[in-house]
Each structure stands twice: as structure tokens, then as C-alpha cells.
Design a protein around this nucleic acid. Structure first.
Lengths: 181, 181
DNA sequence: TCATGGTTTCAATACTTACTGAAAGTATCC
DNA sequence: GGATACTTTCAGTAAGTATTGAAACCATGA
């Protein structure tokens, strides 16, 4: 088997497995596959190319491409002379990370803060022992959720350089030098 | 409406909404509800109480309770004189967080690292321009995933005190003092 | 203005995942 | 050993999500 065959297999594998992983990250398999395809495409691709490569319907391709645009992970580009829209993924890993972090914070943490705030408020006056315990638990959860929210906010605003330096200095972690790979 | 009514409403609300949030965190609604119920129960509860409170079947209650035990978020306790098993949730917020962090790392990051490693490896020899770009992209993703994995690992081993101190010192974040609430 | 090429929507359907309830399994007590 | 109290499994079903494909829509150029 040639190096090129290996490479083609690796590409297909990446797309299909990235899709499978997507489901465990709470996004649909197809959306993750479309994202994978775009991340490894040197050129922006059209809806038709996407349908072709992933063997999916037009509607499905369209929905997922637009949803990725909605997340901010994909940009629409128009080539001059062409009427079609083409799609191009953000390829910078740190940028992708910060975008996803912000989106997940918005979907997963912020609503929890709201819920906990309400529950803490409504159990403020209760005198019973279990009522007090409930109130206390809501407060602790709320403190933590707000804290997590702020950490997410702060990190998502960092540039890659400062972030990595920061992590290294205080957690003693740095990605290995490429030469050691 | 009395404070007690408010409190009961808040409890029900917490359970139902925590369940809804669960789906956006990649766990099933019922599992999140069971978890919520246990988090606010002053006493350990039995399978039957769980069925009763959440109005779900025995099989469902059983599966979800055991799955929470599998995550390490819930412990089985046996009361003396009783043959039933009772279930008790970990209530310490930081502990819950570190458990969930570890589990999500294991499910969401580690498999990605494996995938990327394989894809990078199999595209090593490829000479074409797009092949090189692919290889490079796999390496960047891999570096980042390994880095994220280590950060997760490190944080999940921290105790609450050091973690909060650390976050405060370098990100300038601290949960507000309770007196200000 | 209409024909063409492209985008968007959406009802019907397929697929996936969660839940039920009853039956089978296990441990304990007398 | 057998009755009792509880736990576990699982085939069938219900509920929830994603996908298709075709029709409606929109923009452009002749």
C-alpha cells in the first residue's frame, strides 16, 4: 500500500471518526463530519461538493453548513465569477477552541446559573432544616457555576501565546516540542 | 403563597430543569433528574422512593441510579436492619466537578487524541502539498488535545482550596463573598 | 420579463435513544 | 428448602432527533 493510499484512508477515517466523536460532544454526527471535511480542505468547498464527499442530501448539507456558520466556526466565501457560495473553516486550533468554549458556556453554564439563582431566591425564607440545606446547596452550586462561567469567559478571551505560557508556568504543562515527535 | 410552597415549587423546578440541562451536557434527562433529586435529599433514598418522586419505572430508576454509581457521583449505602439499598449523592460541589471533568476528559478528549495520533502517523510520508497540510493539521490538533488532556488531568487532581487560590491569583476571579449576596 | 442557477424550507420518514413492565435472578431469613 | 424481599435484565415500545427530497423561494443576466 502506497503512502497516498494511507493518506486517503486517514482522511476518510478522520472524517468518519470525528463525526462519531461529535456525538459525545453534544453535536450531531453530520455536523461534526462537515466540520472535519472543511478543516482538512485546502480550498473552500460548495454545498454540492459537501453532499458528494459525505453522501448526504442537499437539505442536510445546507442545514449543517449554516449551523457551523452560526457557531462562527465556518465562513462563507464567494469566488468572483461564481454564483455559488463556498464554505471555509477556521483552521487555527486555539481559535476553534475559544469559539467552542464560549458557545458551550452560553448553552451549558449560563442557563444553570439562572436556574440556581431562582431556586436560591425562592428558598431564602424557609425555616425548616431541609429547607435550609436546600438553600445552602443552591448557593454553593450557584457560586461554583458563576465561578466556572468567569473562568470560561476569561480563557476564551486569551490569545494562544499568553494562554500557553500561563498554563506552563502554573500547571507545569507545555505541549512537547515538535522535534520530539 | 407561603414560604414553604415556594420552597416545594423550587425543589420541583430544580429537579425538572436540572434534567433539561442534563441533555445539553450529554447525559440523559432522567439521569440528571435522579442526580438532582439525590443532591437535594438530606437522607439517602431507595429505588422505590426515586420511582415515586420522579414517576418513572423501576427499570429506568435502577439503570440510572447504577449509572450514577458508575460515574462515582453516587454511593450505595445500606441501613442496618434494612435489606434495601439506598443511594446517596456526593454533595461537595468541587468533588462533583472534578469527577465530571475526569469522566468527560476520558470520553471526549482521550479518544480524539488516539484518532489524531493515527491520522498524523499515516500521513507522515505523504509528499503532496495537500498531504502535508493534512499532516500538519493533524499534528496541531493532536498537540492541542494532549495539552487539554493534561490540563484536565491536573485540575481534576487539585483540591478546592488551591484551585480557587490559583484561579484568583492569575485570573483575578473569586466567587463573591457570601455576605454580599 | 422570464429562464437559469442557486438557496431555503419543511412535511414525511428513518434512525437512534430512552423507558416500561414483567420475568428472571439473587440473597436473606426462618 | 422454600418463602420473602429485593435487584437485574431485556424485548417491546415510545419518544426524540436527524435526514431526505421535492417544492417554494430568490437573485441574476439576457
Amino acid at each position: 500500500m502506497s503512502a497516498t493510499d494511507d493518506f486517503i484512508a486517514a482522511k476518510d477515517d478522520f472524517i468518519s471518526q470525528w463525526g462519531a466523536l461529535g456525538t459525545s460532544w453534544g453535536i450531531s454526527r453530520t455536523m461534526a463530519q462537515v466540520h472535519a471535511l472543511l478543516m482538512i480542505s485546502p480550498e473552500p468547498i460548495s454545498t454540492d461538493q459537501c453532499m458528494e464527499e459525505l453522501q448526504i442530501s442537499r437539505g442536510n448539507a445546507h442545514t449543517n453548513l449554516k449551523e457551523l456558520v452560526g457557531w462562527g466556526l465556518v465562513k462563507i466565501v464567494v469566488k468572483k465569477g461564481e454564483r455559488k457560495e463556498f464554505f471555509e473553516a477556521e483552521k487555527d486550533v486555539w481559535k476553534v477552541f475559544t469559539i467552542v468554549l464560549r458557545e458551550r458556556k452560553r448553552r451549558e453554564i449560563d442557563p444553570a446559573v439562572e436556574l440556581l439563582k431562582g431556586c436560591a431566591e425562592r428558598s431564602k425564607q424557609v425555616k425548616s432544616v431541609e429547607g435550609k440545606a436546600f438553600h445552602e446547596q443552591m448557593n454553593e452550586l450557584q457560586d461554583f457555576a458563576i465561578f466556572a462561567s468567569k473562568v470560561g469567559e476569561t480563557i476564551s478571551q486569551l490569545k494562544y501565546g499568553p494562554a500557553i505560557k500561563f498554563a506552563d508556568k502554573f500547571l507545569g504543562l507545555l505541549p512537547k516540542d515538535k522535534s520530539s515527535r
